[in-house]
Computed example of a mutant assay.
Amino acid sequence: MTGKVKSFLKMTWLNAAPWLLIVFISMQVLSSLDKSVDQAKYSYSRKVISYGLSDANTDAEVVERIQTWQNDKWGAQISAIQTGCDGDMEFINSLLSNRNGAMICRIAK
């Protein structure tokens, strides 16, 4: 490479560095916002389910309560479970000690 080419590349890099830093920081901010939005998306469903199951201490009680909600057509609770089944399986799995959230989803469908 000639001296002019090296000089040009060096100046181009030095001029581009602040812009690259701005792009990098912007991507980090957008990524953290995306995670916050994803957490907030299921917040209401989690609260409805948690409140409804607050006194259910065993897996059998959890399943029985959800079956009661389904039989009695408790729309808010069943819809919250369906929302969780569609996109928040980590939470649904955490409702049972054996992490078998699929069983809960089958009841609520």
Score class of each variant (00 low, 15 high):
M1C: 08
M1T: 06
T2M: 09
G3N: 15
K6N: 12
K6T: 12
K6S: 10
F8L: 10
L9A: 09
L9H: 05
L9G: 01
T12G: 10
N15C: 13
W19C: 08
L20V: 07
L20D: 05
L20A: 07
L21H: 04
V23D: 05
V23L: 15
V23H: 07
S26E: 04
M27K: 12
L30W: 11
S31Q: 13
L33A: 10
L33K: 10
D34N: 12
V37A: 13
D38K: 15
A40C: 06
A40R: 10
S45F: 06
R46D: 03
S50M: 04
Y51E: 12
Y51N: 12
Y51F: 14
Y51G: 15
L53W: 01
L53D: 00
L53M: 05
S54R: 15
S54H: 13
S54N: 13
D55V: 06
N57W: 07
A60W: 03
E64K: 13
R65K: 14
I66K: 02
W69Q: 01
N71S: 15
D72A: 08
K73Q: 09
K73H: 11
A76W: 07
Q77W: 02
I78T: 05
S79N: 14
T83K: 13
T83D: 15
D88F: 04
F91T: 00
N93R: 07
S94G: 07
L95M: 04
L96N: 00
N98W: 05
R99N: 15
R99C: 08
R99P: 05
R99L: 11
N100R: 07
N100W: 01
G101C: 02
M103E: 15
I104C: 01
C105K: 03
R106I: 10
R106S: 15
I107D: 00
I107M: 06
K109Q: 14
